[in-house]
């Protein structure tokens, strides 16, 4: 999940009696699973919430390139290097695609990016963790893209048409990334040296909890979820999604021959789900507030790229303008 704690502006859900005729018509459409399109009327809160959620998602794709960029210059062979490059390129593409979908709501890409650089907009907390060994490229693909997919598969049914269609396309590529990530780990566990196997376990130990945090706070700590669910911007609650992720991931973890850094993790025969330990929520909120290992570096790198690239973009605009004038004069 690349969007966490998305503010909806709603303290509580409106009852049908409290809704204006337009709001009521809108809600009935949403309830009937009819997609909302850019030209349709929508409540201001719905529009703003979507802009926040889609921009967070787009920012996450772009910031998410950095922990991978950290290893793309040091990949272990040509095949893995090319795979990682293709993944990074896909992510830049997802970012572009999502910003476009966000712009259908009247938001401006440059303004939203500026908010990111000022620390006013969020992106997924996961990308504030460092990638410290090569196996992180596998673990990120498997766990981080894996967690993102659990959320995004559900978001294919989100009520806003352009976002829903973006998700369909993005999900296909993310599934591919996840399989590649898992394969990296599997190959190292099956045919690797002891050092390589230790690398894999180390990567899982570090990325496990931050990956679970990607789903956001517990449902009762998530004040905005109810409105987002009613608007069908969200389709399942944070805890539901987290449980789905754990249930599908543990068998894969066992197949790898690795362990999770959670002594409370065990199969619960009664519920038919895995029980797991409590997330360190203090760490989650710290990272969200900017106090994660790499928050500062990530934003500084992004801001520097855009700031120092200003003259390049200005040149492109100036040149296009000159070309237009020349065409008119001719």
């Amino acid at each position: 999940m690349y969007a966490q704690l998305v503010e909806t502006g709603a303290k509580r859900l409106k009852t049908k009696e409290e809704m204006s005729p337009e709001e009521l018509e809108f809600q009935e459409k949403v309830d009937a699973e009819i997609k909302i399109e850019p030209k349709n009327w929508m409540p201001e809160g719905y529009r703003k919430t979507l802009i926040r959620q889609i921009s967070q998602h787009a920012h996450s794709e772009v910031v998410g390139m950095l922990p991978e960029g950290n290893w793309v210059t040091r990949a272990p062979n040509l095949k893995r290097k090319l795979q990682l490059m293709a993944k990074i390129q896909d992510e830049a593409g997802h970012g572009l695609y999502l910003y476009s979908s966000m712009e259908t709501l009247g938001a401006d890409r440059d303004e939203e990016i500026e908010k990111l650089h000022q620390g006013k907009a969020k992106y997924s907390s996961i990308f504030n963790y460092p990638t410290l060994n090569w196996a992180d490229m596998g673990a990120v693909g498997w766990l981080v893209d894996g967690a993102a997919i659990v959320n995004q598969v559900v978001l294919q049914r989100t009520s806003y048409g352009p976002y829903s269609r973006a998700m369909v396309r993005i999900c296909k590529e993310e599934s591919f990334h996840q399989r590649q990530g898992y394969q990296i780990l599997l190959d190292m566990m099956r045919e690797g040296t002891d050092e390589q196997k230790a690398m894999v376990q180390d990567a899982i130990n570090r990325i496990w909890w931050p990956a679970l945090m990607m789903f956001g706070p517990h449902d009762d700590e998530s004040p905005n979820s109810q409105q987002s669910l009613a608007w069908k911007i969200k389709r399942k609650s944070n805890d539901e999604l987290r449980q789905m992720f754990i249930d599908q991931t543990i068998p894969q973890l066992e197949f790898l021959g690795c362990t999770a850094p959670d002594p409370d993790l065990k199969w619960n025969e009664e519920t038919g789900h895995y029980d797991f330990g409590e997330i360190n929520w203090q760490e989650f909120y710290d990272v969200l507030k900017g106090n994660g290992p790499c928050n500062r570096e990530r934003i500084t790198t992004r801001k520097k790229a855009i700031d120092e690239g200003a003259w390049v973009r200005q040149a492109a605009v100036a040149y296009a303008e000159k070309q237009k004038q020349r065409a008119n004069a001719a």
């Binding site: 772009v62 990074i88 790229a305 390049v312 973009r313």
Partner: peptide, 15 residues
């Protein structure tokens, strides 16, 4: 060019 990952002047250029 790999060194430029995340550092290009625009998202289109990243791609």
């Amino acid at each position: 060019l790999c060194e430029l990952c995340g550092k290009a002047p625009a998202l289109e250029e990243e791609m």
